[in-house]
Design a binder for these strands. Structure first.
Lengths: 254, 254
DNA sequence: ACAGGCAGATAAGTATGACAATATTGGGCG
DNA sequence: CGCCCAATATTGTCATACTTATCTGCCTGT
């Protein structure tokens, strides 16, 4: 009965808005988010069978076309798999594409767990450390300039949103300078982590933290400028670890 | 005119077969692979607009349902974005989900470039090094046992396929022991890299290389057993770098 | 009693034609 | 000359019918 047409929007919208991604509001995306969240939140257990088409059709009051396209989207992200006569099965989590922006967003909708933020920080450390090191080896002068500019904008930011945006720009610039397409491809992940972290606590509100965060990022940029891979690695590790520590401290402490 | 029903299958099938993944053969997956490959191969340039539904319908001789589900799948993987009245646009590569198994497979269909293999090795180094370090900190005794068993099976493998399978098992076991769900989620990537590498040159055929490869993997397992993160990091880096070097050397050097 | 295949039932896959929503483009009106 | 609106092209949604795959269980032949 709670299926009134205009229910509250997903937290994913915040992230989409921040990133300038389109958030077209079509029926199929409604169904998609509903089902995606239901699966990620465990409402449909891994390995279980979803209700058959007919039942879902009745529940969502949409056409078969819409439902099936939503399910196909979930299948494309590795959440489900359909088989004739059996039904549509929820796949085990290790088949899910956790690097997908939507799948990540659904995870955040059930409240960012500290353990999840930590997992995120760990992958970021792995990938972005290498990206920084590669950038230090391969950067062009042009790319180095962009990095320094991004740091300057971080230092000058006045609102948490501004800061987060420029922070993201910085990390994207590092990924680009690495010359490795995979590095650039995980910006969705970085974006989610940064958004989550800054939703919890932004350095902008704590002058001391702001100065330190900017300093660490400037150290990364400098190491890349100096073509110093090892220095870039270490600085990047500190930047990510500190960002996570601040958010985690804020969540547990207080 | 070349749209005869039973044309040669994609190289992706090899990988799917090796991984035991299902390869259902429905219409929509035909269209999906055709279009996916066309986009990845640059046949449809980034930022360009795909032909309208009507034209694609005519080209593939399928129903609108099938075509649209295939396009929705591509959209879910970040390759395209449809907008009313505008058409369906090919997104820039940095929006593509390169960690998706299908997208990866399409990249390999146009012949594995050395530069692409290198990019793959670089991300693997980033992620798997951290996974190994985390595994060294968090492993259970049970997980350690599985690791050693996988190494033993690698040493005893007699065919390239067997070796690749056990190698993959090993890397999956490390990812599992890390306790980080993201690490486990990239096994598709590792799988692709290993399959590609061993298609080019398997250590099984070179006794010396086999001994060395097994030794390095045993070193990883031992470091994790000893709860020695730094040792695990270094051994993992060597394992991946050597694997890539062997394949690359075989491709360029002859 | 058992093996094997044959048929029914169920759920996903495919087809088709019509209509709605949306955004660009160009023309008409102030 | 500029603004607004309508024509138009393209994707989005709907409803219904039919096809294919495959699991279950009966049924037959040995």
């Amino acid at each position: 009965m709670d299926r009134s047409g205009g229910r509250a929007r997903h937290s994913g919208d915040l992230i989409a808005a921040l990133s300038g991604r389109n958030l077209a509001h079509n029926l199929h995306s409604d169904v998609l988010w509903d089902m995606g969240f239901a699966i990620v939140s465990g409402q449909y257990a891994q390995g279980s069978i979803l209700p058959p088409d007919t039942e879902l059709l009745d529940r969502f009051r949409v056409s078969r076309t819409v439902l099936r396209e939503a399910l196909k989207t979930l299948a494309a992200k590795g959440l489900i798999e359909a088989r004739a006569r059996i039904g549509t099965r929820v796949l085990p989590r290790n088949r899910w594409n956790l690097f997908d922006a939507d799948v990540l967003a659904w995870h955040f909708e059930l409240g960012p767990e500290v353990s999840f933020l930590q997992s995120l920080a760990e992958v970021r450390i792995g990938i972005e450390i290498e990206a920084a090191a590669l950038a230090a080896e391969r950067r062009t002068d042009e790319q180095a300039k962009l990095l320094l500019a991004a740091v300057d904008r971080m230092a000058a930011a006045s609102t948490p949103e501004d800061f987060a945006r420029h922070d993201l720009d910085f990390h994207k610039a590092v990924a680009n300078a690495s010359g490795n397409p995979f590095m650039a491809s995980i910006s969705a992940l970085v974006e989610m982590a940064l958004t989550a972290a800054f939703t919890i606590s932004s350095p902008v509100n704590e002058p001391e933290a702001l100065i330190q965060t900017v300093a660490v990022h400037r150290a990364i940029a400098q190491a890349i400028l100096d073509k110093n891979p090892q220095g870039a690695r270490e600085a990047m590790r500190i930047a990510i670890a500190e960002g996570f520590a601040r958010a985690a401290g804020r969540m547990e402490g207080v």
